[in-house]
Every structure is written in C-alpha cells, then in structure tokens.
Amino acid sequence: MEGVIDGAFADPVMQSQSVFRALMDALANPGTMRKLPVPRAIGTSMIPELVSTLLTLSDHDTSIWLDEVLRSEPANVQFASFHTGAPMVAEPGRAAFAFVHSAEAMPPLDQFNPGTQDYPDRSTTIVLAVPSLSGGPALSLRGPGMKDEVHISPSGLPGDFVGQWEINRALFPRGVDLLLVADGHVMGLPRTTRIAEGQ
C-alpha cells in the first residue's frame, strides 16, 4: 500500500515536464530512443515507465484502460485512481490511453479506438511495456519525423505486429499511436509511420 500513496513524482511539475518532452520527442522522431525519467518503482506489475507516462498524461478528463494483468492487481488500480483521478474503462475501444504490461496482455490494435474521420484525434494512445527496445527482429521505418529510413529492433512485440500496423496505417488520418517503453526509455510509433520487416 505504501507505493500506492507515495509512489508518484517527487517534483510533479518538473518531472512531468521532462517526461512529456521525452514523449513529444519520441513521437516527433519515430524509432528513436528517448530517455524517460521515472519515479521509483511502486513494487507491482506496473513498471516505473508505465507509471511515468500514466502520471504525465492522465487526469479526470481522460479515460484510461489497464490490461488484465495490470487490472488484476488492486494496487495498480488504486494507484491510478489515487494519483490521476482518471475514469477507468473496461473496453480498450473507449480509452484515451491504454497501458499494457506486455505483448501477451495486448489486444489486437483494432480493438482500440481509431477516432473518427471528423475527429481523428479522439483515438487511443497505447503505452506498451516491452522487455527491451533492442535485440528483437529488425524493422525498418519511414514517414514523417524521419529524414531517412530508421532501423529498430524492439523485442517482445505482439505476434503479427507488422500486419496489424499496416491496417492501422491505412486508416489514416484515423488510427492509434503507440509508445513503447523499456529500461528508462521510450520509443514512439505514431500512426503515420510505415513499418516493414527486415533491414
């Protein structure tokens, strides 16, 4: 219970500013790794990188969704409610932000909200914790934010991720945006990014 109460940022104003800049830079420069400041661990399945983004992005005005693993631990739900006041939703399709513990707990991308043609911004941003932002199969990226092709190799992405992403990309301007977090870093994959397998 201790982590639930005092597990947040020690200096919320400055820390959420630097976390936000990491997220902004990550989405503006897809595929690059940005240092993500994190508070100390709260000792649950909600790793500090998820806590960081949760605290920086969510409040009373945003609906959030936690995957089954995260939700199954009451301390996570209590922590999110206590520190953000954000309404928790049961279906990923109604969430402004979705926090996902691992690829195994991740629903298919089309289960989230892609927004509407009139308001493509009313979509879900997914924060997915992965084991590592490197060491996985090679992917190459193109699109806004990248001068040339960018090569990444995050490990622990969902099966058929590239195929799902291609469908998501084709919805543009609708679609979901993805933030991958691991080891004190964040990598952004906005809906504009085209992803291909291999180098």
Partner: peptide
C-alpha cells in the same frame, strides 16, 4: 498542471496527425 496536461495531450495528437 491540468491545463498543461490538456495542451500536451493535444500536442501529441497533433504530431501524430500532421
């Protein structure tokens, strides 16, 4: 801080939908 969060969320969407 609440206003900043609201604006920051808008900025992230804006970047994702150029």
């Amino acid at each position: 801080e609440q206003t900043k969060r609201m604006i920051r969320r808008a900025i992230l969407k804006a970047i994702a939908i150029p």
